[in-house]
Design a protein around this nucleic acid. Structure first.
Length: 651
RNA sequence: GCCACUGUGGCUUAGGGGUAUAGCAUCCCAUUGGUAAUGGGAAGGUCGGGAGUUCAAAUCUCCCCAGUGGCUCCA
């Protein structure tokens, strides 16, 4: 028998009989408990059953590595399909990919509920215990067609994906077989640490005109600890939920009589919102922005001119017929800002012109997508549009990227990254403008980012219909990525709105580039993320209640009033609780409103004109002079500090 | 909009065919208290809305509405 030489890890090459399987090699070198679920053979992912026939290198793929988890989750999706097709013989599996934290599988079948989910989970566990081998089988086209003959969805995939290629593989475990390229875990016992989480409806090929499918989600990990950690993360994220905290702190309300997706800012939330606005107004003053206010509705012709109506109609509220024409609620501010720009003759000396507005726009989001402040139908935006020459685009983008970085630093966000959002050249119908213009402007943005040395990722198909953009992506407590801020380049507006300026030569120049930017997202979204990030314990300058005064007994009412008056004079938001309750109870009650500081006032404090402090993190200190407290908290507020300036001296 | 689940006083919640639990908050009385539950008492809901089944519905059925998770979409 011929021998082959196999390099494995940093070890000396081993000699094996030709035809030995990957699994045997790993077993030989790393033993039974290697933790491997597959291997890289000369850099290509292979199953344990793959037979080695030439000299090669073998590197185990461990179950808790990214690649290993991907394989486990993929195998777990097969396990799900095995259980489902067994319990529901009419169910047709379609596709079942691994995703972050787990997997899903879409079935053509009747919708199922939670009870069925538990039954399926039980069946899956049975198969785990049975420890079926997961066996790869090779087929030619005709053979494969036979395997999936009664599944039109699989046949459709096969026709599309395999095309000219001859043959492909399927994986068998017990009685179940599924067309798949693999690789997979060697047996079902590797799939112990999973949990089915939810069901949903999806459409075949994500097309609502095609067959509705039942999607089943699960999570899957290599170890018990991994699964547990994820469950804990979900639980922790629940504690940060802005909907829960928003209710506790009375930030906003949603009343069904007003309508869903239409939040009302309650006094405490309004404070957050106006502090954010104030910060933005100050910042934009230094960057040279001009503020305007535009109407919430406008004539149909305006949105036809902007191109929104043909491209964006689904996202706009339905039209209103008036006696003098058809009106729409605005879903964006840009068309009106363009008209502001056009309102008078502009000179090259005036550019760039930056028009800013705190406006509300209205978008007709699908009712099922609305949730808390994260997805609403009325959006308050710190919006602005910059009108400039091509030469000025780079510095304007740079300014905005810097602005975003400064804002995020002040608000304490670090969990974000930049994304260059490009058009999809395969699907050009969605966009306006010429192919060359898109490519040129996209390259322009890429160069700006490269020159700035900013880390970013690229995303095809995420551009706005009028141009490419730089999005700032935020990672939530659940580990999910959400769009937060955006800086967009628009090369279409100049033609649609006939924007122009008088250039150095005295000629009317129509090369006006427009930048749409909203560095603070929408107030709704921003407050939702802020709440989650700080778990409601906002930095003092944002805190709706900056100081909650609590008296020890009714004897100290007068001193409490004095302290409160002094704080108010200093511009601090303060509330007093001088009610007849124990100190412990008052602290417990006010904790839920998360004041930045609680001041405990009793005999000692009244006599010495001092305060005792209990900060939002629970730390406390005594005997601080009232004047010191006022000057320190004032500084903390005016600096917009995220730290507690009044570091406790004792506990 | 689509699929699943959920909907009980301000909040959290028990119950699940014979007209409703409890805690917190609220109000009153006593207590004047030193940093996450002082004691006692009172008031408050017809069980998201509507229709139906039944002698009888919060409890079963249907239709709406809203919330949650997901699809889709997206700031």
């Amino acid at each position: 028998m011929s021998m082959i030489s196999v390099e494995i890890g940093s070890e000396e090459p081993h000699e094996y009989a030709n035809g030995i399987s990957v699994g045997e090699v790993i077993l030989n070198v790393h033993g039974k408990r290697s933790g491997a679920v597959a291997a890289l053979v000369d850099g290509i992912e292979r199953d344990f059953s793959y037979e080695l026939e030439t000299d090669c290198s073998v590197e185990p793929i461990l179950g808790d590595s990214d690649a290993g988890l991907y394989i486990l989750r993929h195998s777990c999706a097969h396990l799900l399909a095995q259980a489902v097709t067994e319990l529901f013989p009419d169910a047709k599996p379609t596709i079942g990919p691994p995703i972050d934290h787990g997997f899903y599988y879409d079935f053509y079948m009747d919708p199922i509920g939670d009870e069925e989910l538990r039954v399926i989970e039980k069946k899956m566990n049975e198969h785990v215990r049975a420890n079926h081998k997961i066996v790869r089988e090779e087929f030619d086209n005709a053979g494969l067609r036979e395997v999936i003959a009664d599944n039109k969805f699989k046949l459709e995939i096969m026709d599309e994906k395999i095309g000219e290629e001859v043959g492909s593989s399927a994986y068998r475990q017990g009685d179940f077989i599924d067309m798949c390229r693999g690789p997979h875990a060697p047996s079902t016992s590797h799939l112990r640490f999973f949990k089915l989480t939810s069901t949903s409806q999806a459409y075949w090929r994500a097309d609502s005109k095609r067959e509705p499918l039942t999607r089943i989600y699960g999570m899957c990990y290599a170890t018990k600890e991994g699964l547990k950690a994820r469950q804990q993360q979900i639980q922790e994220a629940g504690k940060r939920d802005h909907k829960k905290i928003g209710k506790e702190m009375e930030l906003y309300m949603i009343d069904e009589l007003i309508g869903k997706g239409l939040p009302v800012w309650l006094p405490n939330g309004e404070i957050l919102k106006s502090e954010i606005e104030r910060f933005a107004v100050e910042t934009e003053e230094t960057y040279g922005y001009d503020r305007v206010t535009t109407p919430v509705l406008a004539k149909q012709q305006l949105f036809e001119c902007s191109g929104h109506l043909p491209h964006y109609a689904d996202s706009m509220y339905p039209p209103m017929e008036m006696d003098d024409g058809t009106y729409y609620l605005k879903a964006m501010n840009c068309p009106m800002h363009h008209l502001v720009f056009r309102n008078k003759k502009r000179s090259y000396r005036d550019l760039p012109i930056r028009i800013a507005e705190y406006g509300t726009v209205y978008r007709n989001e699908l009712s099922g997508t609305l949730t808390g402040l994260l997805r609403v139908r009325m959006l308050s935006m710190n919006d602005a549009h910059i009108y400039c020459t091509l030469d000025q685009v780079a510095s304007e983008f740079a300014d905005n990227i810097r602005m975003v970085q400064d804002y995020y630093a002040t608000f304490g966000f670090t969990n974000y990254h930049f994304r260059l959002s490009l058009w999809d050249p395969e699907n050009t119908d969605k966009y306006i403008g010429q192919h060359e213009t898109w490519e040129a402007t996209q390259n322009h943005l890429r160069k700006i980012l490269d020159d700035l040395g900013v880390d970013y990722v690229e995303a095809v198909g995420e551009a706005a219909f009028y141009g490419p953009k730089i999005d700032i992506q935020f990672t939530t407590a659940l580990g999910r990525e959400e769009s937060m801020s955006t800086i967009q380049l628009d090369f279409a507006a100049k033609e649609r709105f006939e924007l122009s300026y008088k250039d150095e030569t005295g000629a009317e120049n129509s090369e006006v580039f427009v930048i749409h930017r909203a560095p603070l997202s929408t107030h709704e979204r921003f407050v939702a993320f802020l709440t989650e990030h700080w778990i409601g314990n906002f930095p003092t300058w944002l805190s709706p209640i900056q100081v909650q005064v609590i008296t020890i007994s009714e004897k100290h009412k007068e001193y409490a009033a004095e302290v409160s008056a002094a704080l108010k004079t200093a511009g601090v938001r303060v509330k007093v609780d001088d009610s007849d309750a124990t100190i412990g109870k008052k602290i417990r009650m006010h904790r839920k409103m998360r004041p930045a500081y609680m001041l405990i006032l009793g005999e000692e404090e009244a006599t010495g004109s001092t305060v005792s402090i209990r900060a939002r993190n629970g730390d406390q200190c005594k005997g601080i002079s009232l004047n010191d407290f006022i000057s320190q908290i004032s500084e903390e507020i005016s600096n917009r500090s995220g730290e507690l300036a009044l570091v406790p001296s004792e506990k």
